[in-house]
Amino acid sequence: MTISSNLWLARLLALAIPALLIAGAYIAQYGFGLYPCEMCWWQRYPHFAAIVLALLAFIIPPARLWVVLAALAILVSGAIGAYHAGVEYGWWYGVTSCARLDVPQGANALDTIMNTPLIRCDEAQWRLIGISLAGWNFLISTIGGLSVFWLLLRKESDA
């Protein structure tokens, strides 16, 4: 059974979009010190799911089902990004407790608390042409997820 070129490209996009966005998030975090707030983490979780679902599309039939689920997960991350961007721009209120604390095994909890940066969900740490990282996630995820659906719905050309 051969896979159509549209499905092949949709499958590739469904893997590449979340993988590149997650890679960018980790580069921003560990390379440039832009630590994620709680709502930033919320945006990452659907991308992790999308990566797994897109990988399943490469190994377990029916590939189209896994790609559809991956595209939905990408769109969910985009929706969370839109909500988070709205909080950053002051369009609506977000969550009030936005500090994230992970205490490593065997570490002193007080030292961890004192050395953990407080990252607010309502203040963008970085912007490019006035758009925050959450806003960029919204734009890229929404356009990417819709592109995957467009490819899945597009008829194959006879060329």
Results as ranks from 00 to 15, higher is better:
Ala28Arg: 10
Gly31Ser: 12
Leu9Glu: 03
Ala49Ser: 12
Trp126Thr: 08
Gly145Phe: 04
Ser97Thr: 07
Cys37Arg: 02
Gln29Pro: 01
Leu110Trp: 04
Arg154Ile: 03
Ile129Glu: 12
Pro104Gly: 09
Ser97Trp: 08
Leu69Ala: 14
Leu9Asp: 01
Ala79Ser: 13
Phe48Met: 12
Lys155Met: 07
Pro104Phe: 11
Leu151Val: 05
Gly81Leu: 07
Leu139Glu: 11
Pro36Cys: 00
Ala10Arg: 08
Ile59Tyr: 13
Met39Thr: 14
Gly33Asp: 09
Cys98Glu: 14
Phe58Val: 01
Gly24His: 13
Tyr89Ser: 02
Ala54Thr: 04
Ile80Ser: 02
Gly24Met: 13
Ser97Ala: 06
Met1Cys: 01
Gly135Ser: 05
Ile80Tyr: 04
Gly33Lys: 02
Phe58His: 11
Gln43Trp: 01
Ala85Ser: 09
Asp102Ser: 12
Asp122Arg: 00
Leu110Asp: 10
Ser4Gln: 07
Gly130Met: 07
Met1Ala: 09
Gly33Ala: 08
Ala73Thr: 02
Asn115Asp: 14
Gln105Phe: 05
Pro104Val: 11
Val67Asp: 12
Trp91Val: 02
Leu56Met: 15
Gly31Asn: 10
Phe32Met: 12
Arg11Asn: 09
Leu151Gln: 06
Ile113Thr: 07
Gly106Ile: 03
Leu75Pro: 11
Asn108Thr: 06
Phe48Gln: 06
Ala49Phe: 14
Phe32Leu: 11
Trp136Met: 10
Ile74Gly: 06
Tyr35Cys: 00
Asn108Arg: 11
Glu123Gln: 13
Met114Pro: 00
Ala107Val: 01
Arg154Leu: 11
Gly130Tyr: 10
Ala16Phe: 11
Arg64Pro: 00
Val103Trp: 03
Ser147Gln: 06
Phe138His: 06
Phe138Ile: 00
Ser157Gln: 12
Asp111Lys: 14
Arg44Lys: 08
Val148Ser: 03
Ile119Glu: 04
